[in-house]
Design a protein around this nucleic acid. Structure first.
Length: 618
RNA sequence: GAUCCCAUAGCUCAGUUGGAUAGAGCGCAAGAUUCCUAAUCUUGAGGCCGGUGGUUCAAAUCCACCUGGGAUCGCCA
């Protein structure tokens, strides 16, 4: 198909100023422009404006945009007892929209669908606008202060595949909200205050009973040097946990140690400090390799001092109850079918529980940050827990219900649908997964014969970036809430809808920009003629929508879709529309170069939000 | 037992407020590189949207029931 011939009738110069947007008006996308026009047309006919929405077409082969309001309008008239024909309504709408500067063609199809093609002037004008905009069409919102609680890490437990999702999704949402203009604080909220600490303490006691931390006659002046490394912690915890499962008396020792720790036993507190410090150092490395960064490294232990006052306050409010020796807050409501179990503030043993520390953390955040919104990116299986905590926090009057949100995600399963295990039946460590990804990327570099002459260091950097991109994109492109199959073969596939595909698109643009510089070709006025160029502008145009819908639903996969579609549109443009080839006229080179630059900028924004970094070449 | 989530192409998954011929990637079949990176592009085959009934001019989408899978259900986190 020769699109040059098809577009021959459009050879007049498309001057951006011919389509008046007005310099002081806020930017609006092509779709927003069309949507405003179609809604107004319905409104003028006496219908509610919102039935006239224009959207991206389900049938892009017919036209890029569609408006289905005529059927809805006919439905409204029918309810009022008036007879009407949706095609006739559509016809009137089309007539009233006729001549709109952004609309090239309208066509009524089927029962009353209106298919809409934008004018070349509108496309060109929008492309010019996007090219001039640092954020390539992304608009910001009124800023809020938002805390995101994610990562899901625990002291003493090495990071494994189960930690991947919270880190990757949470990081993406943090960056997404920041990009929209919010003030976002990422908090790792370390699990460092529960039974696992009792396990660690008692197991270490069994292994090295002579350590001064266990000497009850001593209460300060403990060694500055840590008695354990990360490997020790990783070994001690499962050992204790397994013994405790078999042996109730072993479990009891861990419980007692936990209670003593929480009661403030100095030797145990000193040990905890070491455990936390050693773990944080390891976690920073692990998260760092994934490109995940936290603003706060607070944990449950950090808010422990707030608990007595908090509990006193809750008691004074009269919302607590004693039940079987435990202190609880009832949070069930009358109308719900199923009784929501109460929040457990204190166990009958007097120990502090998960509910208590999470509530204390809410108190702490209120006092220190006073956020508008707190988001928890935690496994969906904890939905009930958060519902209970949130209700208690609302009951206490600290927050409104809509300031607290649990963004659950599905569990990661193996191909058999059960929680993923390695062939040996163990959990796959995150660092092993990462090196698997790097190796696969390195292998691909070898196969492609690319990078043989690259410096060793750059090669390693490329393999790492490709591996991380593949890993993160594979995770983020899944709908957040559903379970997800962890399949190493699929993870290391670098073709199709993958992270490396996106990097490849970015790298090809970078390569062109370097060559253009060498050849002294500079970007210039955009002119849209080819269908691949139109497709690229339409893809660029939808960035803000993708950001908004991804934000509204806290759904990174919607942004993944956009970035992938953008890369696809670019790839098609790349193969259909030579940019620097000798036969391309200079004016076309300049226009296409602008499109390429603009695409790269949007692609890099999108990749950055996803937490993916592109190399210079690959 | 109760409550919640899920079921869409051979596989992994999208599917906006209910709209046309339900999409993408992988895999499969056929093609494209004297030209900016083929980790690419083009074309094709492939579907009873778990089942039954209901609401509607129109249902993968809303409602009811059923089947299959998963999760959760006060002193673990």
């Amino acid at each position: 198909m020769n699109s040059r011939l098809n577009n021959a009738h459009l050879t007049q110069t498309a001057n951006a100023s011919a389509f008046q947007l007005g310099k002081d008006k806020p930017m609006s996308s092509i779709l927003e422009t069309l949507n405003a026009a179609s809604c107004a047309a319905f409104s003028d006919m006496g219908f509610p404006a919102n039935i006239g929405v224009t959207r991206e077409s389900d049938r892009p082969d017919l036209a890029p945009f569609q408006c289905n309001g005529a059927m809805a309008a006919a439905g409204i008239l029918k309810k009022q007892g008036e007879k009407s024909n949706p095609r006739e309504i559509a016809q009137k709408i089309v007539e009233s929209l006729q001549g709109h500067p952004a609309i090239a063609e309208m066509e009524i199809a089927g029962p009353g669908f209106i298919n809409i093609r934008p004018t070349r002037v509108a496309l060109t004008s929008r492309a010019v606008e996007l090219a001039a905009d640092q954020n390539v069409g992304a608009t910001s919102v009124s800023p809020q202060t938002i805390v995101i609680d994610y990562g899901g890490a625990n002291v003493a437990k090495p990071m494994h595949v189960g930690h991947l999702r919270s880190a990757v999704i949470g990081e993406c949402l943090k960056r997404l909200l920041r990009f929209q203009g919010h003030n976002v604080i990422g908090d790792v909220h370390l699990g460092d205050w529960g039974l696992q600490m009792g396990h660690l303490i008692t197991e270490l006691m069994d292994e090295q009973p002579d350590l001064s931390y266990f000497d009850v006659s001593k209460n300060d002046d403990y060694p500055v040097e840590t008695p354990v490394q990360m490997d020790d912690l990783a070994r001690l915890y499962p050992a204790a946990s397994n013994k405790a499962k078999e042996d109730p008396s072993r479990m009891e020792r861990s419980r007692v140690a936990t209670a003593e720790l929480q009661a403030g036993r100095a030797g145990y507190r000193a040990l905890l400090e070491h455990f936390i410090a050693v773990s944080i150092a390891a976690l920073k490395e692990g998260y760092g390799a994934l490109g995940v960064e936290f603003d706060l490294w607070k944990g449950e232990a950090a808010v422990d001092p707030l608990i007595p006052d908090m509990i006193a306050g809750l008691k004074a409010q009269g919302i607590t109850e004693e039940d079987g020796g435990a202190l609880i807050i009832r949070v069930a409501t009358e109308e719900e079918k199923k009784d929501t179990p109460p929040v457990m503030l204190l166990a009958s043993s007097g120990a502090v529980l998960y509910h208590t520390t999470d509530l204390a953390t809410l108190v702490d955040r209120k006092a220190e940050i006073d956020p508008d919104l707190i988001l928890y990116v935690v496994d969906q299986r904890q939905a009930l827990h958060f519902e209970q905590v949130f209700r208690a926090a609302v009951k206490a009057g600290w927050y409104k219900r809509d300031q607290l949100d649990h963004l659950g995600f599905g569990t990661m399963n193996g191909k058999d649908g059960k929680p993923f295990k390695t062939r040996e039946g163990g959990v796959l460590r995150l660092e092993d997964l990462m090196s698997m990804m790097r190796d696969a990327a390195d292998k691909r570099l070898n196969e492609a014969g690319i990078g043989a002459d690259f410096p060793e260091k750059e090669r390693a950097d490329i393999a790492n970036k490709v591996g991380v991109a593949a890993l993160k994109f594979a995770d983020l492109q899944n709908q957040r809430i559903t379970n997800y199959i962890f399949d190493p073969e699929r993870f290391t596939a670098f073709e199709g809808k993958t992270g490396p595909y996106l990097l490849y698109a970015a790298v090809r643009i970078k390569s062109i920009l370097r060559k253009a510089k060498d050849q002294n070709v500079t970007s210039g006025e955009v002119n849209i003629n080819e269908s691949a160029e139109t497709g690229l502008v339409l893809a660029l145009d939808s960035f803000d929508r993708a950001l908004k819908s991804a934000t509204d639903k806290y759904a990174p996969h919607l942004l993944c879709d956009h970035v992938f579609r953008l890369a696809q549109a670019f790839s098609r443009f790349y193969s259909d529309c030579p940019i620097l080839a000798g036969e391309t006229p200079d004016i076309v080179k300049a226009s296409r170069l602008t499109l390429a630059e603009t695409t790269l900028r949007q692609l890099e924004h999108g990749l950055h939000i996803l937490g993916i970094e592109a190399p210079e070449r690959m």
